[in-house]
Amino acid sequence: MKLGVFLVLFGGRKLEEALDFVASRGLKAVEIGTGGYPGNAHCNPDLLLENETALKEFKHAVESRGLIISALSCHGNALHPQKQIAQGFHDAFVKTVQLAEKLEVPVVNTFSGLPGDHEDAKYPNWPVAPWPNDFQEVLKWQWENKVIPYWKEWGQFAADRQVKIGLELHGGFSVHTPATLLRLREAAGEVIGANLDPSHMWWQGIDPVQAVQILGRENAIHHFHAKDTTIDPVNVNRHGVTDMQEYSQMMDRAWQFRTVGYGHDIKTWADIISALRLVGYDYAVSIEHEDGLMSVEEGFTKAVQNLQQVLIEEPLGDMWWV
């Protein structure tokens, strides 16, 4: 496995400065934002797709520092019911896949998207209860008319370019659990896999080790985010896990994101890493830092220190003791 970072964390620094910093901390991989919610501070597909010299310079900047690009990320909602919004996210995805092909980056990370509840809806609708039955009807309409058709078409677009799609299992989108990921994968093909982030499993009540095993048995983990979550034992009883308070309301929220090791102990993270190795995942472990109690640099540094204790890096050898 290769320890990496989602480079948008250092969006305030120039590309070369950010790459120097992460390389100096011993990392081997970077995940780079190309548009959508993560922005494109370090990588503008419009420029790189049109300028071969700029493309070569960009690739050299990464490789000359002993790094790989584990994924290009353009998280967005290409299924948004407002067509202008959806088109912007869709265009970012298409250009990101085209750029990934040119850079020989094997994975593009994004969200599945979330439609509205009918053709003329204005806002996305996230059904999370089976009753009243209206929610079942909405869910059926979304998947049959929007989610599956979109990803069948654009999943094939990516597959034709030897690019895999890593969908982040995130609340508020159609694909947010192992089951919904596998449902879409069955319909749209093996190009669809997970960008698995344990932090979003914990707040939904899903054990990340089990999520790794469920998805790993289907070879459905394309990329991995390293981020932690803590659940407040008092506030969760007041607000539930679907707490709608802003993330800044840290004293009152039911749960919040933490840097690795500050929501769950190192043994738990060792179990997650071991489960990844068990199912054959041997790719990037990409740090994503959204900890409201720590600065960017401190949160990142502590995540690196904690993960370096448990990361399994060397190739598997023979079982000499057997």
Rank of each mutant, 00 (worst) to 15 (best):
Q87A: 13
L47H: 09
Q98V: 05
A303Y: 01
P106M: 00
V234G: 09
G193C: 07
N195K: 07
Q308K: 15
G292N: 08
K95F: 09
S199V: 07
A129G: 04
D46S: 09
E104G: 02
T301K: 08
E50I: 02
M244D: 13
P38I: 00
P124T: 04
K164W: 09
D134H: 14
L307A: 08
W321H: 15
V296K: 13
M244L: 11
L293A: 11
P132Y: 11
Q256V: 09
V304I: 15
A284W: 00
L27C: 14
L311C: 02
K227C: 04
N235M: 07
L49N: 10
V94R: 05
I312F: 08
A18S: 10
G116T: 08
L182G: 12
R277Q: 11
V147M: 06
H223V: 04
S24H: 08
L215Y: 05
G113W: 01
V279W: 05
P208S: 08
L182F: 12
N235S: 08
G317I: 03
Y123W: 13
L79R: 02
V8H: 05
I266T: 13
L196Q: 01
A78L: 12
R13Q: 08
P38A: 03
F257H: 09
G216V: 09
K302M: 14
L19N: 02
V212D: 05
F157C: 01
L184N: 03
Y281W: 09
F111G: 00
I221N: 01
W143P: 05
V62Q: 04
V8R: 10
D134M: 12
